[in-house]
Amino acid sequence: MEAIIYLLEITFNALVWILVLRLWLQLVKADFYNPFSQFVVKVTNPMVVPLRRIIPGFGGIDLATLLLAYIVASIKFVVIPLINGGYFNLPESMFLGVLFLVKHSGVLLFIIMLVMALMSWVVQGYNPTQMIFHQLTEPFLRPIRRVIPSIGGLDLSVLIAFILLNVINILISGAIPVWRML
């Protein structure tokens, strides 16, 4: 039973991450022709396009993708408790779905910034993935760079962003029971 729950957790997390990535790529107007962007769009199109026919975008936000990510996040808190032999509470599942979506968006941002920092040490020259990661993280790092400029050529904005994301993660984790976050 634990293996099934583990696989379901990975599936729900991956679906939420890929849907958040699609929404995020659209919001920052990232390069659509980048191979990474193309991968995200092609993987999510079968889920998003049918829903987009019913739910149009609003103000530059793809509401169909946002709603789908929220539904997937909420369903996680219905399916996992039922498989564990417990019960589910629909209002609680909907609330936890919002928290899960916010928390995993922050985790995704953390992972992308970490990979971007590691790539800056290793990759020389142009790399399409590094460019798309830069486009994704720049809206979050730019306000930090305005307050704390680089010191002696060392950019501390990523470190400050890590600390802020960790504080937000701790606050959100306090609102979600530990057994539900596995």
Score class of each variant (00 low, 15 high):
Leu118Pro: 07
Pro149Met: 01
Glu92Ile: 10
Pro149Gln: 02
Ser37Met: 01
Ile18Pro: 04
Leu136Phe: 08
Leu136Gln: 02
Leu182Asn: 12
Val41Glu: 05
Thr137Ile: 12
Val41Phe: 06
Phe12Thr: 07
Ala161Lys: 03
Asn89Met: 09
Asn89Arg: 09
Thr11Phe: 15
Met116Gly: 12
Leu164Ala: 11
Ile83Met: 10
Pro149Cys: 04
Phe77Met: 02
Ile61Ala: 06
Gly85Asp: 08
Gln26Lys: 12
Ala161Tyr: 03
Asn45Ser: 13
Leu156Gln: 06
Ile163Asp: 05
Arg53Leu: 08
Phe39Asp: 01
Val167Ala: 08
Ala117Met: 10
Arg146Asp: 11
Ile172Gln: 09
Met116Arg: 13
Leu8Val: 09
Val79Asn: 01
Val167Gly: 06
Met1Ser: 12
Ser37Gly: 03
Met181His: 07
Glu138His: 12
Val98Met: 11
Asn45Pro: 04
Val123Ser: 13
Leu159Lys: 03
Ile163Arg: 02
Pro50Gly: 04
Leu154Gly: 00
Pro91Gly: 09
Leu114Thr: 14
Asn166Gln: 09
Pro50Gln: 04
Lys103Gly: 12
Ile168Leu: 13
Met1Pro: 11
Ile18Leu: 15
Pro35Lys: 05
Pro128Gly: 10
Ser74Gln: 05
Phe95Tyr: 15
Pro46Lys: 01
Asn84Glu: 14
Glu9Val: 12
Pro81Arg: 02
Arg52Asp: 02
Phe12His: 09
Ile80Thr: 02
Ala64Trp: 03
Val147Leu: 14
Val167Glu: 03
Gly57Glu: 07
Lys76His: 08
Arg52His: 04
Lys103Ala: 15
Val147Ile: 14
Ile80Phe: 03
Leu23Gln: 07
Leu27Ile: 13
Pro177Asn: 10
Tyr87Ser: 14
Leu118Thr: 11
Phe88Asn: 07
